[in-house]
Measured scan of single mutants.
Amino acid sequence: MALNTPQITPTKKITVRAIGEELPRGDYQRCPQCDMLFSLPEINSHQSAYCPRCQAKIRDGRDWSLTRLAAMAFTMLLLMPFAWGEPLLHIWLLGIRIDANVMQGIWQMTKQGDAITGSMVFFCVIGAPLILVTSIAYLWFGNRLGMNLRPVLLMLERLKEWVMLDIYLVGIGVASIKVQDYAHIQAGVGLFSFVALVILTTVTLSHLNVEELWERFYPQRPATRRDEKLRVCLGCHFTGYPDQRGRCPRCHIPLRLRRRHSLQKCWAALLASIVLLLPANLLPISIIYLNGGRQEDTILSGIMSLASSNIAVAGIVFIASILVPFTKVIVMFTLLLSIHFKCQQGLRTRILLLRMVTWIGRWSMLDLFVISLTMSLINRDQILAFTMGPAAFYFGAAVILTILAVEWLDSRLLWDAHESGNARFDD
């Protein structure tokens, strides 16, 4: 018995066209964080690309023209004298008006014999932002004059995390709450300039795509075929072959399989920071003279006294001054041990922890910024005066060393310790 099946006739004509040209192939790229070699397709503007294995951002879609970056830099340069030299806060102490600005706080630190601690604050609040705007201006002028731009481009990517104007702005709020127990506070004209400078700096850093600047100024022929001998440069993120001198053909720094002496430098910085954190938390970090009496505060006791007036601000200072430094030390110690013992479990967790400490590390400088600003506000000789204690130097040095330890660690070593050939990683 035959089955009668109805015929289905399409209502619209289906047209099949042959592909007349070869589909576009992607360029081969190595991930600078996990060293995976993959094919990167062509990316349009405002599109980002991520590593298929570790999800690290390979290409950032946010990109401004150099002219727009230069305009932002010149605007920031105009704001800087007002943000640093004009009063941020006014207080009335014992019937006398006192003005506080950024430069005055750094000068008070240096004047009291601790120039190293003052230079830490100076670099993060004044030096690094000033280098940022002058570097962008150098790129703008240098591109037109045919100057060598490689050193500036190499420095810009590392400079971003040292620009800490946003953290200093939080420190202004913390210092205001600490001082309000002794005097009446009012915002100064410099505060508005400083807030504007923070906003412009944040926007500029978020749109400063150094890798795209490398592509514009020093374009290189990408690798179009897969080759395990391809290496990625950690300076400019170019994937290719080393030249005859073993250097990256684009930025001219040595092109090595792994960062040289990464573990040794990381261990040295980490152990030194552990040693410095002990006096930083045991010795007094601030000293207040009130009517001839002397009151010393460690980091913890200062947080407890701050909690009596504002528990939320005390929580912020606790996280930045105690929780973050010790968390960074514990995480980095764990990561280094996992590399030495070739741990194969929990790779995803370790990668996330490394990215976390990379982002939060700079916030530990908050305590030094609060001390710097408070020193310029309260300084009335023996009637009422505020000065920093010996722990300030140890704390600042420990924070900087932990930042350097994270920067010096080559994250690809975590993958080397893991089993080879993993296309995915999980716990």
Rank of each mutant, 00 (worst) to 15 (best):
residue 1 M to C: 00
residue 8 I to K: 12
residue 9 T to W: 09
residue 14 I to N: 13
residue 15 T to C: 11
residue 16 V to F: 11
residue 21 E to H: 08
residue 21 E to V: 11
residue 39 S to R: 12
residue 39 S to L: 13
residue 42 E to T: 08
residue 44 N to F: 10
residue 47 Q to P: 04
residue 47 Q to G: 10
residue 55 Q to G: 10
residue 55 Q to Y: 09
residue 62 R to W: 11
residue 64 W to E: 06
residue 68 R to F: 15
residue 73 A to G: 11
residue 74 F to P: 12
residue 75 T to I: 09
residue 81 P to R: 13
residue 82 F to N: 10
residue 84 W to P: 06
residue 88 L to M: 15
residue 95 G to D: 02
residue 95 G to M: 07
residue 97 R to C: 08
residue 97 R to K: 15
residue 98 I to S: 08
residue 105 G to W: 01
residue 105 G to S: 05
residue 108 Q to N: 03
residue 108 Q to V: 11
residue 111 K to N: 09
residue 113 G to F: 06
residue 114 D to S: 09
residue 129 P to R: 00
residue 130 L to S: 14
residue 132 L to W: 05
residue 134 T to Q: 08
residue 141 F to E: 01
residue 143 N to H: 14
residue 144 R to M: 14
residue 151 P to K: 01
residue 152 V to T: 06
residue 156 L to V: 13
residue 160 K to L: 06
residue 170 V to M: 12
residue 172 I to S: 12
residue 174 V to F: 14
residue 183 A to I: 05
residue 185 I to H: 04
residue 189 V to N: 14
residue 191 L to E: 10
residue 195 V to G: 13
residue 201 T to V: 13
residue 202 T to I: 14
residue 210 V to T: 09
residue 212 E to M: 14
residue 214 W to G: 11
residue 218 Y to F: 03
residue 222 P to A: 07
residue 226 R to S: 15
residue 231 R to M: 05
residue 233 C to P: 00
residue 238 F to G: 07
residue 238 F to D: 09
residue 245 R to Q: 07
residue 245 R to C: 09
residue 248 C to P: 00
residue 257 L to D: 07
residue 260 R to A: 03
residue 266 C to M: 06
residue 266 C to I: 02
residue 267 W to E: 04
residue 272 A to W: 02
residue 273 S to H: 03
residue 275 V to D: 09
residue 278 L to R: 02
residue 279 P to T: 13
residue 279 P to D: 06
residue 291 N to S: 15
residue 291 N to P: 08
residue 296 E to V: 05
residue 296 E to I: 15
residue 298 T to A: 08
residue 300 L to T: 03
residue 304 M to G: 08
residue 311 I to A: 10
residue 314 A to D: 00
residue 314 A to W: 04
residue 315 G to E: 06
residue 316 I to V: 12
residue 321 S to L: 00
residue 321 S to K: 00
residue 322 I to G: 14
residue 324 V to R: 00
residue 324 V to Y: 15
residue 325 P to R: 00
residue 326 F to L: 12
residue 328 K to W: 00
residue 328 K to E: 00
residue 329 V to Q: 12
residue 329 V to I: 08
residue 332 M to D: 04
residue 333 F to N: 08
residue 340 H to A: 09
residue 341 F to G: 11
residue 345 Q to F: 13
residue 346 G to W: 13
residue 351 I to Q: 11
residue 355 R to A: 15
residue 357 V to Q: 05
residue 357 V to C: 06
residue 358 T to L: 11
residue 359 W to H: 09
residue 361 G to Q: 01
residue 365 M to Q: 06
residue 377 L to S: 02
residue 384 L to H: 02
residue 385 A to N: 08
residue 386 F to M: 02
residue 391 A to Q: 02
residue 395 F to E: 00
residue 397 A to N: 06
residue 398 A to F: 02
residue 404 L to G: 03
residue 406 V to M: 13
residue 418 H to D: 14
